[in-house]
Every structure is written in C-alpha cells, then in structure tokens.
Design a protein around this nucleic acid. Sequence first.
DNA 1: CCCCCGTGCATTTTT
DNA 2: TGCACGGGGG
Length: 685
Amino acid sequence: MQNFNTNQRKAVEFKGKHLLVLAGAGTGKTKTIIGRATYLIEQGVDAEKIQILTFTKRAANEIVERVKSSLSSSASRNLRGSTFHSWCSQLITKFPNLFGASTFTVIDPDDQAGIMKMICGENVTEYKAIRIKPQQLIDIYSFARNTKKSLTDALRLKVYKGKSDKETDEEILQIKPSIAILLKAYQAKKMQARYLDYDDLLLVIANRLRKDPEAKKILSAHYDHILIDEMQDTNPLQWDLIEPFIAIANLFCVGDDAQSIYSFRGADFKNVHLFTERVPDSEVQVLDKNYRSTQSVLNISNWLLETSPIVYNKNLVSAREQGDKPELVNVESQWEEANFISERILANYTEGNKTFSDHLVLSRSQYYTKPLQAVFIQRKIPYVTYGGRKFMESAHIKDVVSLLRVVNNPYDEIAWMRFLTFWDGIGEIRAAKFVRAIIDCQDSEECAQKLPTIIGGQDGAKIGTLFNNILETKGDVRAAVSNTYEAMSLNLAYKYRKDWEEKRKADFPVLEILAGNYASLGEFITEGILENSKQINGTPVLESSKLTTDEHKDHVIISTVHSAKGLEADTCFVLNVSPKVYPSARNLDNIDEIEEDRRVLYVALTRAKNELIITRDTSSINAFHNRRSNSEAAQQDTPDQGSSYFLENLPMDMVIQKNVDKIRKRGHDIKVPNEIDLSMGMDFS
DNA sequence: CCCCCGTGCATTTTT
DNA sequence: TGCACGGGGG
C-alpha cells in the first residue's frame, strides 16, 4: 500500500457517507481516488458495486489499472471505470426495459452537425432569418441542455457574450422563434431515426432516475460507491445524474476549482462550492501539499492565480526542493519554436539521461501543434498526441461503419446517406429519395427485401445483396466488419487513392480486431463512437486497445491543455504563451472567459515536475507592447490592458528569459525548414 | 437535372 | 484537413 499523508489517508479511509476532496494541482488527487477504491475493496466492498466516473476514458483506464495492480487478489477484477457518457450508454443497454431505448444509435458531433445542416436545408425560411450556422445551433442546443438554461439564456451567453442590453434582448426575441423551429425539427429527426446524441445519453438516465423511484431502486442494488474525478468539470446535467445517487450510494468526489476549464460546455463549479449544502451527510477534505513540482514551478503558478480578480486561495507549497527557475523563451516563428523544442528534447535524451516520455508538450489548440509534429517526424522524435480526430471519426472508417449502422438501425438516415452516396453514380439527390422510401420499412428484413426495387438496376441488386449478407452475419461482429470491408475495399481504395496505401488501408485490420471485442453490432457502434483515440507518430490508434506493440514505447507526449489534466512530466513545454492566445483574442470581451483561459494556463504550468519551459512569439509580444503604449499615450481609461496578456506583469526574477536567436548564434545549428527569404535582397522602400 | 472534382479558405478547448 | 463553392461533364 502506498504512503499517504494525513489528509490523504483521512480521505481514503473516510467512514462517513459522502466526501468532497478539494485537491490542488499535484497534491495526489489521482492517488487518493485510486487509494479509495483500493481501500474499499480491501474492506470487503464488492468491486462490482463501485463505479468510477471520469471525463476521459484514459483517466478511467488508468485509475482502474492502478487499483488492480496495487491489489494482489483478484477481488478488483470487476471494478468499473467509465466516462459519464459510456456509463450511461452501458446502463441503457444493460436495462433496455428500464430506459426504453432498445434500438438506438449514438451519433457523434459530425452526425449532429450533418443532421442540423439537413434541417436548415429543409427550413430555408427560418435558416435565412437567423445568422447562425448549423454547427453553432448544435452548440447552443447542447449548451442549453447541459446547463438546463432556457433558449433565451443560452442564446444570450453563447451568441451575445452574456450582454443584456435592450438591443440584444430585441434581437434574441426576434430570432428565437426561428431557432426554436429548427431545434424542434432536429429533435423530431433524432426521435424518428432512433438517434441519441451525447447529451441524450445522460438525459435518458437522469430523467428516468428523477421521475421513477423504481428505476432508482433497481440501480441502488447495483451501486454502493460512486467515485467521481474532476468534479469541477461537471455541469448541471451531470449533477442531475449524480444527485439521485445521494440517497442510494456513497459519493466520493474529487476536484479543484482552480482547474475548472470546461465552462464552455456548461461545467459549473457550483457543484464543488455548494457540495456540502446540496449533499446532506457530507464532509470536505482538503489536500494542499504539492508533491509534483519544485517550488520554482509553483511560484509562477501561484503568481498567475494571485493576479486574477477571482480569489482562489490556492497557494501551493511544494513538499520538494526549490528547483530551477522556469525558462521563458522568445521565438520568432512557429518553426523556430518547434526546432528549439526538438533540440532541447534531443539534448535531454542524449546528454541528460532523460527518456522521451519525460517530456510533455502542451498547446492551447490541436491545430497549433501541426508544425511541431512535422519537425518531430523530420527529426525522428517519437511522439503521441491525445485528442484530435478519433479513429472512428475518420472518413474511411465511417464509410464501412455506415453499412453496419443501417443494418443495426434501419432508421439511421445519416448512415443511409453515407452508405448510398459511397457508390459511384449515387449522389445526394438520388440517395435522399431512396432514404425516404427506405425508412418506411418496418424492420431490417423488409428493408433487405425492398432495397433492390427502391434503388433499381445493377446498383440495386448489388446493394441489396450486400445489405442482406451483412444482416445475416450480424451476430458475428468481426465477420460483419470483414465482409463489409471486402465488399467496399475496391471503392475505398479509389476514393482515398491519395493516401490509401500509406495511411488508411492499415486501419481495417485494426477495426476488425476491435470488432471482435463486442458481442453485438449495436454495442460495437455505440462504444466505438465513444472510444477515444490517440496518435502515435501521427497515426491514429485506439487508446484503450492493446493492439499495438508500440503502446509502451518511449514517446514524447503532445497534448492540448484540456486533454492534459492529470498528466505530469519531468520536463514540460508550454507552447505559444503569447498575447491573443493567453487569453485568447476571441475571449477578450468576456471576463469569465478570460479567467477560464487563465485557469487553462494554470493547468498547463502545474504539469511540470522539474523543468518548465514557456515559449512565446516575439512578434506578437512586440505588437502587444506597441499597441499598449499607443493607447496609453492616447488615453488612460483602459485599466484592463495589463490583464489582456497574462504574462505582462510577470516578475522577471521568477523566470530565466532567453531568446532562441542567441542560442543559435552560440553555435547550435538550428535549421528552419521552408524559410526562404522572399525579399531576395530587394528593398522596396 | 445531377454528379464529380478542382480550388481556395479558415481552423479553441471535449464527451 | 475538411468544407463550401462553382464549373465542366454525363
């Protein structure tokens, strides 16, 4: 058993009913939740009656694996850890009668946007009356449901940045009816096609538990302990899901309000602040001793929170030594930044006795890491990225899965459209016509029978036979995938000829093996959609699968800050901490969003154990300073200028500032690829 | 009328 | 990297 400090032990061995663990960054949050699960099992609690809930599959898997390895007995064999979403989908499948959804298909954000686009196309008058794109409509809809806010409030917050002047009110009033029509049409389409989107998964369970004491009773027999990680990221909808369990199970929630970075999807740290008020028989345990980072790393992190108008009362104190000051490195371009980081990692690796996996690179956005990945590939630095496009979301996989989806749920219009337009000569117009006829069928059998006539000709015969073939093999998911691929592979190879051999072809054996893990088509489709992926050296790999031998190799981790919660590394690079990024230029008019960006940076800084290296772009720093001094000269009534760049007033004795330029001049050969001086010595002045 | 393909463009953060 | 748009071809 691990060593716990006094407070950690109090949490792990808590004897009361419900506990909230308020744990700052690096204070042993994960360790405590693992310790708690281990302790409960050791105390004789049936592992099956413990449910661990997290926000990412990665976190869930890690916790479960570590509990299992810390126990010698097999008592932990049935311990379950899932994301909120996959837990709910499992419950729906496990109790089909309880939640009334026997045939359904979980749709991903791409599908949601696709459906909304269709809806907007069918309701042109309403769509034209608003200046909101389908994707944003989906965001508004999701936000409203996750936060349980009215459409008016959701619109105000999402579209009008929370403004409440008369003009805004009128505009909202004006567009609201049209939006309501579009959203209702979207809901009707979901119902008709038996779709559940991500939010529906939670809503189905939460609503049922709320309304039906019987459902509560049945679930109470299955769960004694609910352990929730990252409590500060739960939103009101998730609270609705948790709340019924207060009466029927023990809650053990772990969180840190300074690390709340998901308010854009409705997270509300009231769930942390109001915990003891909302939950009877509950207590709070604080963890404040930081074991992860050196004091120098914590100093800058603490400073960042202190400069916030929000009072966090988080002064992290390291249990370790002072350590080296963080480095603040000025770079002139993204390529220079990427080369600098590569050099540094290679130096640490060859001279500094560090492994690649001692390094973590954090970015505000996925997109920004592209040049870095290019340089890593060029320099042969092995890396993994988290987040990004999921395996099941890539186009070629979706093509194959579309047939599985229509066999599983013949009302699945999106999948029908994808499957039909996949074939040469069938475009959107004809496919849509076919779909209208197809969804009149009562079941898959009738569908199989009528397909040839609906489509007609050779296409009809071919597609009908294929559908029938998969319908017959649907009991064997792996065979269904294999047969589907066989039938589609020629067309796939042509459609994706640009990168078929190098990239996409190899995904299908992976898909087949994955399919073999599921007992039914429905489970495969649902769980597969919720499955996370990571990428190894740019190639997507299923995160939870043990398919690759690469799995435990030595890799640098590249991650967005949002995906990096819970991660830590000896050396941590935080990319592009420049004006307009921290905080983001698009958030400047909203104090709440500025403060959320601050917490994003805080999360990033607190990942580092020993070496913290912050990079930033020289030109944007200069632009920021010029703009500042200009506006200060002109008028002095803009007191928030300083706060519009978090590092603006950073005490320089907290860091060591460097310019990559100088490093290069000292003799390091840093190659910047594709940098051609286009001026060619010409001065046009 | 419908389908296909080339070009240009803009890209927060996640289940 | 995906997507919206427009022109050419069937």
